[in-house]
Each structure stands twice: as structure tokens, then as C-alpha cells.
Amino acid sequence: MQEIGTFRISLPSQILRRGFWLYVWRVVRDQSPDLLYVGRTGDNSSPNASPPYIRMGQHLGSIKNQNALRQHLCKRGITPEDCQSFELVAHGPIYPEVVKPENFSHSDSVTKARLMKMHRPIRDIVGAMEKRLAGELRSAGYDVLNSVKWQYDVPEIDWLPVRQAFAADFPKLGGTI
């Protein structure tokens, strides 16, 4: 029989801000090392950059193209509902979302193409940060569930402050390179 409980989640209002964020899920399990999942906001197919709180429910939900964290856990034979807790460490917005016209419609292909032209370079930098964060966490000895494949690199000057921010929660990263 399932245990009935009362639970509380507190969200800082800043996590509601749209833009390009990096985040790390820490999956805490009884008697087992923590697992990490690295992600970012900033869509590949639209000029949207949602806040991380939107990704929270999606990652553990049932929609197949949105629930990457759930899928990675299940591949390891781990039922998310059996985990002790999930902690989200989010950093951002590193860059703001591309400003859209007030009456923007995704069916307006001309405006969407213009917005994507502004969106892609930022998305590519944040995608490179996502890849680097996952790789450095793994190299530091953390068990990272996902591999991030991204063809672009991030300049050191952009990367170091982000790395420093995550090192506060993941001390094996160290404070500096």
C-alpha cells in the first residue's frame, strides 16, 4: 500500500524567468550514489527559451519527447517514484529569450525564421555549455545519466563563471580550472 503524505515544494520566483538556463537534476536514492542529469532551456525547433520550472514536470512526466530524465532512469532499471528525492540546480537566465512580437504565431514562417536566426547563436553557446558541464561533471567523478552531443564550443570567458556557479553545488568540479 502506498504511503499518503503531505509535501511542500518551494520555488524562488526568479526560476519563472524565461531565457537560456543550464540545470542539473540530482537524483537521490537510498543507499546508492546520486545520479545527475544535465540540461538546458532554449529550444532547437522554435525561438522559445522557457524557464526551468516548466522543464521540471516534463522531465518526470509521461510525454515521450519531453521526459528525458525519466527515460534515462528507466534505462538503468530505476523507477522514478522509488527514488528518495529530486533536486534541481538551475543557473540563469544566462541569456534572455529572443523578444517576440506581441502577436507572434508559430505558423508565421517568415517571422519564425527571423527569430530563429537570432535564437540559434545563443542556443549554440548554451548547448556547448551544457555539453561541457556534463563532461566536466563526469570527469570529476559524478555519475551523469546523459551524454550531451553538441558540435559547438564555448569560449572560456563565457564558460568559467558558469562552471564556478555549479561548483558551489558540485564541489568535485573545483572552483577553477
Rank of each mutant, 00 (worst) to 15 (best):
V162C: 01
L22S: 05
E102K: 11
G77K: 05
D124L: 11
D169K: 13
I54W: 07
I177W: 09
L160R: 14
C83W: 00
G77C: 04
I78D: 09
A90Y: 07
R55M: 04
R123F: 08
Q2N: 09
R114H: 09
P96W: 05
Y23E: 06
D143V: 04
R114T: 01
G127F: 00
D124N: 15
C83I: 01
Q58R: 15
S46L: 11
G135S: 00
S10H: 09
F7I: 03
Q14L: 12
G174S: 03
A90E: 05
I15F: 10
H72V: 00
R120V: 14
K149L: 08
Q2P: 11
V110A: 13
M116C: 06
F166E: 07
R40K: 15
L22H: 05
L145V: 08
T176L: 14
A165W: 06
V24K: 09
P155D: 11
L36K: 07
K172S: 13
E130N: 10
M1V: 10
R138K: 15
A113V: 03
V27E: 06
L69D: 04
P33I: 07
R26H: 02
C83F: 00
L137A: 00
R18P: 09
P80N: 10
L145C: 11
I54G: 04
T6Q: 12
Y95E: 07
H91D: 09
L11P: 02
L88C: 14
E97T: 02
T111F: 02
V162L: 08
Y53N: 12
R8T: 12
Q151W: 05
A128L: 01
S10Y: 04
F166Q: 10
L16M: 13
R132P: 01
M1T: 10
R17P: 00
T79G: 05
A49F: 03
L160E: 15
R138I: 01
S10P: 01
Y37F: 15
